[in-house]
Design a protein around this nucleic acid. Structure first.
Length: 188
DNA sequence: ATCCCGAGGG
DNA sequence: CCCTCTGGAT
């Protein structure tokens, strides 16, 4: 899962899922992945984009797993952040999905949708994460990011949100603005 | 063109 | 704060 999440940056899940079977067949363990030739890794993951950086990170992170974490993916934010290519968002995905720790992974969708809905006012992912954790019941921390991401992908698009199809349009402080924009009377 | 469950470096 | 990394789908 760690490798898949690293691959998923700026890449669709469908594309990641097409890529991982051959990758994991070739390198089934952290040890194998750490010893993989960079060129081969690059060829295997090329279609996921950012393939040079991701290959380097996957190899280096695998080496770190072997050398410093006993071949296992660590369970704390602090340790996860030590892995090359793993930032706060990726770490939170691992904590929430693999270790059921109720972490809130704030990506571009979560940031945008939470902001538009008035769930968080901050502009940095870390602060939005903190604000969401105050507004959202702890039992739902692990899922709330998925709900916001799904809504962001289907309805609340970055450029042109489809407020006319939005089920929470009546609760949304931003809807009025976007509805005016899409009807063509005002700009901005 | 615009978007896809970002991270790291300057 | 900004920039760069990258290919594929729509």
């Amino acid at each position: 899962m760690l490798i898949a999440v690293i691959l998923s940056a700026q890449c669709t899940d469908a594309r990641v899922n097409l890529t991982t079977p051959a990758l994991f067949a070739a390198y089934p363990t952290p040890q194998a992945m750490a010893a993989a030739p960079l060129r081969t890794l690059e060829r295997l993951i090329r279609s996921c984009g950012f393939f040079r950086m991701k290959s380097k990170n996957i190899k280096a992170a695998s080496r770190a797993l072997v050398e410093r974490f006993n071949g296992r993916v660590p369970r704390t934010m602090e340790e996860l952040l030590q892995l090359p290519g793993v930032g706060r968002k990726t770490a939170n995905v691992i904590l929430a999905t693999a270790y059921d720790q109720g972490a809130i992974a704030v990506d571009t969708h979560v940031l945008r949708v939470a902001s538009r809905l008035g769930l968080a006012r901050a502009r940095t992912p870390a602060k939005v994460e903190q604000q969401l954790s105050r507004v959202v019941p702890q039992a739902q921390w692990g899922q709330v990011a998925h709900w916001l991401i799904f809504h962001g992908r289907q309805i609340c698009h970055a450029r042109k949100p489809e407020c006319l199809r939005c089920v929470v349009v009546d609760l949304c402080p931003s809807a009025k603005r976007f509805l005016r924009v899409t009807s063509g009377r005002t700009k901005g």
